[in-house]
């Protein structure tokens, strides 16, 4: 099970990476490589050239800029897990990371890579969706930002163009009235979720406002459950669970039938709703 032959180039800069992408029809960016190399080994992917962005300076930083937490494309799960900035300003991410695969995968895997790859069963795309993140994308004409609600386009498809790369994730800073919750069901610890849910809300009096419920592993991408969001804002948890019937339309897979996914989606919602309603986080 060895990869098909490919060429390999190290990008010196984002501009260089974009230039290489433009120069090749069948190029893939490699960051952490924890999904990509498995696909290469199995010959499920056989690009002409791999463009390695790991040596590009400036992409491995976590910083606070303009009221956003900026997570560079090369920030790895292990690094984010240790980062006080992440735990302070993006506690949802801190809660989700332990669910991502296993320690050795988290050593190399990047948050940005997960978002760019857009696996429908992965945690990070859903976290971005729940947080209302902005995705910074670089192309030949420079950088642009895409709101997460406009980012996912289909199965493994995103707003990132063929000659573009993701350079950073920008997350609104956590605040005193902000609530976050995360949960997932997986067959075993570290497996891709059968159903998962990342959620954010703003505490408003005794209730919740601005609820964002981002489910994963229930569709082609992470998806928001907007009917349930409205019901939660109205304080109706069981109504929110009932609304999932209209919000979600999962296909069954070998690990969970549609019925199971819907059952677990409801169970997660009850758990997450309780967490969101807890005292300040």
């Amino acid at each position: 099970m060895k990869p098909a032959p490919f060429a390999y180039a190290k990008a010196r800069s984002v501009a260089h990476a974009v230039e290489l992408l433009s120069a090749h029809d069948d190029a893939r960016i490699i960051a952490g490589g924890q999904s990509l190399v498995a696909m290469l080994n199995m010959r499920l992917a056989a690009p002409e050239i791999l463009i390695d962005i790991n040596d590009i300076p400036g992409l491995s930083e976590v910083s606070v800029e303009d009221g956003f937490l900026r997570i560079g494309a090369l920030v790895r799960y292990a690094q984010a897990q240790r980062s006080p900035l992440v735990s302070t300003h993006a506690p949802l991410i801190a809660r989700a990371i332990p669910h991502v695969a296993h320690a050795a995968i988290r050593s190399r895997g990047t948050l940005g890579g997960s978002v760019a790859f857009a696996d429908p069963a992965a945690e990070m795309p859903a976290c971005m969706l729940a947080l209302g993140a902005r995705i910074v994308i670089a192309g030949v004409d420079g950088e642009r930002e895409v709101a997460i609600d406009d980012f996912f386009k289909g199965l493994y498809e995103t707003a990132i163009g063929p000659a573009e790369m993701l350079v950073a994730l920008r997350l609104p800073l956590h605040g005193p009235s902000r609530r976050v919750a995360f949960g997932e069901y997986a067959r075993r610890r570290g497996d891709y979720a059968m159903v998962g849910l990342a959620a954010t809300a703003r505490a408003q009096g005794a209730g919740l406002a601005d609820v964002r419920l981002a489910y994963f592993s229930v569709g082609l991408n992470a998806v928001r459950a907007q009917g349930a969001e409205a019901a939660l804002e109205a304080g109706d948890v069981e109504g929110a669970v009932a609304a999932l019937d209209g919000d979600l339309d999962p296909d069954g897979d070998i690990h969970a039938s549609r019925d199971t996914k819907m059952h677990l989606a409801g169970a997660l919602l009850r758990r997450v709703a309780a967490e969101l309603s807890e005292a300040a986080q």
């Binding site: 199995m42 067959r187 075993r188 610890r189 570290g190 497996d191 891709y192 070998i254 690990h255």
Partner: peptide, 28 residues
């Protein structure tokens, strides 16, 4: 609890990888 070689009606094994054929891991 976990292990199952899942075939479809055409005789295609649906989970012929370590990621999809689940063996017991330490946590469970």
């Amino acid at each position: 609890l976990f292990e199952h070689c899942v075939y479809d009606s055409e005789g295609q094994l649906q989970n012929a990888s370590m990621a999809d054929y689940l063996v017991p891991m330490a946590c469970e």
